[in-house]
């Protein structure tokens, strides 16, 4: 039983760290700010998530397990919210995403409000 737990946690830790590395590469290689924000988000959600799960299996007693869950929950919520705030501010500032050619929604209604003078 202990061996099984060890193998499973080992696997999940490996997956978690894999995700972290790919997200790291993503942060560097991605073209514009939105995609990089996505990569950043992935570190905390998938990478940290898998690592915490792996650790949870290793937890010797309940107290530490509960603490682990609580930390993960807190980490997940705050970091993802901050990435959301970053992306939204950039969007409000009017940066258009490079990849997709959809015009920025805010740009549209700004043009709607001020009739095109030209």
């Amino acid at each position: 039983m202990a061996l099984l737990l060890d193998i499973v946690s080992w696997i999940t830790l490996m997956i978690g760290s894999f995700f972290c590395i790919t997200a790291g590469v993503g942060l560097l290689r991605m073209p514009d700010v939105y995609t990089r924000a996505h990569a950043g988000g992935m570190i905390d959600s998938m990478g940290a998530g898998m690592i915490f799960f792996g650790l949870l299996l290793q937890a010797p007693d309940y107290l530490i397990a509960i603490k682990l869950v609580f930390t993960f929950f807190f980490l997940l919520v705050t970091s993802l919210a901050s990435i959301h705030a970053l992306a939204q501010t950039v969007n409000v500032a009017g940066v258009n995403p490079k990849l997709a050619n959809i015009v920025n929604r805010l740009e549209k209604n700004r043009q709607k409000e001020s009739p095109p003078s030209n």
Partner: peptide, 20 residues
Amino acid sequence: PTPTGAPKESMRKKVVLKEV
């Protein structure tokens, strides 16, 4: 201070942040 100094958005924009 909003970092980019963009025009003041109504609180509506911050719904996600407020919830979190």
